[in-house]
Amino acid sequence: MRHSRPLQNSVHTTATSRLHAKRPTTRHIDDFAPPPLWTVPVMVIKGLQAVSKAQNGVGAFILQCKRLEFNFCDHGGSSRGMKAFLRTRLATFAKENPQVEIVVAPRPHKHPIIRGVYINGREKVVCVRNLELLQVLQKAELLRDASGVKLKKINKPVQSLNESVRGIWSPYHAKGEDVYKV
């Protein structure tokens, strides 16, 4: 029971000390009298196990797109822009993005696609049928810049692993106008 007497008895006022005369509202709960040395067991601090968490971009930045696969069809007209891209721009694109593994493979009798494979294990596929060369390039850049996570609405302006510097507001520590009766 919360309101049992022993708990209350453990708190006793010490109005006699000069220190407490300054703070009449504070009371002793218990003192930290050091126990005799021969009764003290070994006080060991134990370390808990934890694993450091990644903060991509703090320090090194790892591009999250690890592979781009370009699929095209030799005969289909919808692959025209894609094939032009592969012929004229892919070498430059690959040179500009050495972080990305680039795979070119035929995909006969189908529309052309670009598939991005990401470090988190997900894939993102974009169909580039009937797109012109520069539009294909845009899609490739979109996939390169994507992080691979599922699209979701982000409402908070800041996401951080760090704790708030100011701390969480507490009604017990508020002063002045912020004081609420708790």
Binding site: S52, A54, G59
Partner: peptide
């Protein structure tokens, strides 16, 4: 790559 990662050292304590 290694030390820039986040590790809360204050969460590793276990007092007796």
């Amino acid at each position: 790559h290694i030390l820039s990662r986040k590790l809360d050292v204050d969460k590793l304590f276990q007092f007796e």
